[in-house]
C-alpha cells in the first residue's frame, strides 16, 4: 500500500501525460524549482498548466503562454478570454481536490492564498507539481512573480524582457511621483452596504497601489480591509474617493457620495471620485504600473503628473 502510494506520486505526472493528453507532445524539461513556500518541486512537464490566481494568469498571458494553460480559477478575469476559453476550477479559496485533478493539469501554479488548506495540502501530496507564488504587493513582488513564472516555464528570456519592462515602468512612475507637489489624501472603498463602508487600511493591496500612485491613505490607521462607520469616513477628510468596479460592472460610488456628511469632506464637495476595475487596480500583475499611473493621472489631473504625460 505504501509503496503503491509512493510510486503513485512519482508516476502520475507521466500518467497524466500518457493517458490524458494523448496525442499532444508534452513539453518535457526536468528541473527542480523552489517555490514561495520553500518546497522543492520537480517540474517535468510544463504543458497543461492550471493557473490559480488572477495575477498568475495575467503573467502567463503576458508571456504569451496562454496555449499552455488548460484551467484557471474564478479570479482570473483578465484577459477576459481566460475564463471563456479555459476550464474554470472555481473560486481560489474553495477549490476541490478531485475537481482540480479532473482537468488533469501537469503543473499547478497557485497563489499563496489558494484554499481551503486541506485541499491545498492534498494537492501538494499528489504527483502533480504544485508551485506556490507569493501575492507580492510591491514593485519588487510583481517583478519577482514574473521572473519566477518565466523561470519555471523555461522562458527566462521573455520573462527577463517583461520584468525589465515592468521595472522601467515602475521607475518612470517613481519619477512622476517625485514631481507631485501637494499629495492628495485619498481613501479606497471596497464597497458600501447600508451606511457602512469597507475601507482599505494599511497592509492592503489598495494601500500599496496608493503608495505607488503617490496618494496619502487617510485610512492608514485601519489595519486591512475593514468596515468603518460613516462618521469615521467623514472624519478622515479625504480629498478623493477611490473605489473599484466589480467584475459584474457594478460599483458603489453613488452610495458613498450620498452618505450623510460626505458633503462636508473635500472629496464630497468637489465630487472627486475615481472608479477603476478591481483586478486592474489591486491585482499586482503586469498591468500594475499602468494602473498606478492611471490612478495618479485621474487624481492629479490638474497638476504636474498629467502635465508631464505625453
Amino acid at each position: 500500500m505504501r509503496s503503491l502510494r509512493h510510486s503513485a506520486r512519482i508516476m502520475a505526472t507521466l500518467a497524466f501525460a500518457a493517458v490524458v493528453s494523448g496525442a499532444s507532445v508534452p513539453a518535457t524539461r526536468a528541473a527542480t524549482v523552489t517555490d514561495a513556500a520553500g518546497r522543492k518541486v520537480e517540474v517535468v512537464d510544463t504543458s497543461n498548466i492550471l493557473s490559480i490566481g488572477g495575477d498568475i494568469t495575467e503573467i502567463l498571458y503576458s508571456l504569451g503562454l496562454e496555449a499552455k494553460i488548460i484551467g484557471v480559477d474564478a479570479t482570473s478575469q483578465f484577459p477576459a478570454e481566460a475564463l471563456k476559453q479555459k476550464t474554470n476550477v472555481g473560486y481560489l479559496r474553495a477549490l476541490s481536490t478531485e475537481g482540480v485533478l479532473s482537468i488533469a493539469p501537469h503543473l499547478i501554479i497557485a497563489s499563496a492564498s489558494a484554499g481551503p488548506p486541506e485541499v491545498v495540502k492534498a494537492l501538494k501530496q499528489t504527483s502533480v507539481p504544485y508551485l506556490e507564488v507569493e501575492d507580492g504587493h510591491s514593485p519588487e513582488g510583481v517583478v519577482e512573480k514574473v521572473r519566477f513564472v518565466a523561470q519555471v516555464l523555461d522562458v527566462s528570456a521573455e520573462g527577463d524582457k517583461l520584468a525589465r519592462q515592468i521595472e522601467s515602468e515602475f521607475k518612470a512612475l517613481a519619477e512622476r511621483r517625485g514631481k507631485i507637489g501637494k499629495r492628495s489624501r485619498a481613501v479606497f472603498i471596497l464597497g458600501a452596504q447600508s451606511g457602512r463602508v469597507t475601507v482599505g487600511g494599511s497592509g492592503t493591496s489598495a494601500d500599496a497601489i496608493f503608495k505607488l500612485a503617490g496618494l496619502d491613505n487617510v485610512a492608514a490607521s485601519v489595519n486591512g480591509y475593514k468596515p468603518v462607520v460613516d462618521e469615521a469616513l467623514v472624519e478622515m477628510m479625504p480629498d478623493v474617493i477611490v473605489t473599484m468596479r466589480r467584475s459584474s460592472g457594478t460599483h458603489d460610488i453613488d452610495k458613498v457620495m450620498g452618505m450623510p456628511g460626505m458633503q462636508s469632506t473635500p472629496a464630497g464637495r468637489a465630487n472627486r471620485a475615481v472608479v477603476m476595475d478591481g483586478l486592474y487596480l489591486l491585482g499586482f500583475g503586469p498591468r500594475t504600473p499602468a494602473a498606478a499611473l492611471d490612478l495618479m493621472r485621474q487624481v492629479y489631473s490638474d497638476s504636474a503628473a498629467s502635465g508631464s504625460t505625453k
Binding site: 509503496s3 503503491l4 502510494r5 510510486s7 503513485a8 508516476m11 502520475a12 507521466l14 500518467a15 497524466f16 500518457a18 493517458v19 481536490t97 478531485e98 485533478l101 492534498a122 499528489t126 504527483s127
Partner: peptide, 17 residues
C-alpha cells in the same frame, strides 16, 4: 504492487479522495 501509472491515478481518486 503493480506500477501502472493509470491505476495509480485511479487508486488516488478512489482510495485517497
Amino acid at each position: 504492487g503493480s506500477d501502472d501509472a493509470a491505476v495509480a491515478r485511479e487508486y488516488l481518486v478512489l482510495v485517497d479522495l
